[in-house]
Nucleic acid binder design. Structure first.
Lengths: 145, 145
DNA sequence: CCTTGTTAGTTACAAAATCAACCGTTAACT
DNA sequence: AGTTAACGGTTGATTTTGTAACTAACAAGG
């Protein structure tokens, strides 16, 4: 394992971002996976509906930039578990609005509180100013807002 | 789509990091995938060998935190394409050292230059100071160094 | 109306990731 | 030496994802 090159992989932003994203998601993933039997897209859909209320699969896909087939399957799984219900838009019958059931809302509330705790644990190592800079830069990189 | 909650998904660090990581990897992924027919783990292995020279699959797995089955399959694919060769460690015959062939090195050099260009394009929106802060924070989150 | 195109969402099939079990080798302990 | 455990790496079965093609519904232009 001898040095042969001066390119620094850990300074290459896409790589570094992926490493940070994976590592920082790990413990949270454990929880929604092991404790709630959910996949990544599923908790994301759950959270979107929990936060924004009724919205369509298309809306969620646009916001998360997740492909519609993944959304479709996540929605089907959440519906099967009675976490959400669908409602046809009568003026445009292609659309269906999704909203959480009581059970879905309860699960969202639980996971949300896990997320809040987890986030404050993650961010505890940094100052408020640093976090402001970090979030702004990440949002720019993610093309959010 | 009515507001129902004040939890901000785009401030939840694991989510924000994943969005930034995915978006910032997209165009680079297009290149190694479409132009070089590679998978994520494959370019990572290629880069590790290009940067550090000869190393074992285990070493790569430790550094990248990628599971050994994924490494094993990426190595097999790269070997099949004659980008690397294996050499048994005679003092511990479980280990094999991987190193790039001439063709592997050439491909690495090409992709490396793409990566350098791509990175400077990504980082051009930020100041040197901001980038220093960002990298330091990401390394802490990724538990690198 | 009637084509042609587009959209929201689903499905089928191929590709890839995950997980457990496996092989051969080395290490540790008795 | 002999047993047991651990390690590096591979393989096979299952799950998840990606890609394309498909409904069904709407929209625009003739």
């Amino acid at each position: 394992m001898t040095q042969k090159d001066d390119f620094q992989l850990q300074d290459f932003l896409p790589y570094l971002l992926n490493q940070a994203a994976e590592e920082s998601s790990l413990a949270f993933q454990q929880i929604y996976k092991d404790r709630y039997g959910m996949l990544r897209t599923e908790w994301r859909v759950l959270f979107h509906l929990g936060i924004y209320g009724e919205m369509s699969a298309k809306d969620i896909g646009t916001r998360t930039k997740v492909h519609k087939t993944k959304i479709s399957r996540a929605v089907a799984k959440l519906e099967e578990r009675r976490f959400l219900t669908r409602r046809r838009d009568e003026s445009d019958r292609r659309l269906e609005y999704l909203s959480l059931t009581k059970a879905g809302l309860a699960t969202y509330a639980e996971l949300r509180s896990v997320a809040v705790d987890y986030d404050s644990q993650l961010t505890s190592k940094f100052s408020h100013e640093e976090l402001t800079v970090l979030r702004r830069m990440l949002r720019m990189l993610a093309h959010i807002d």
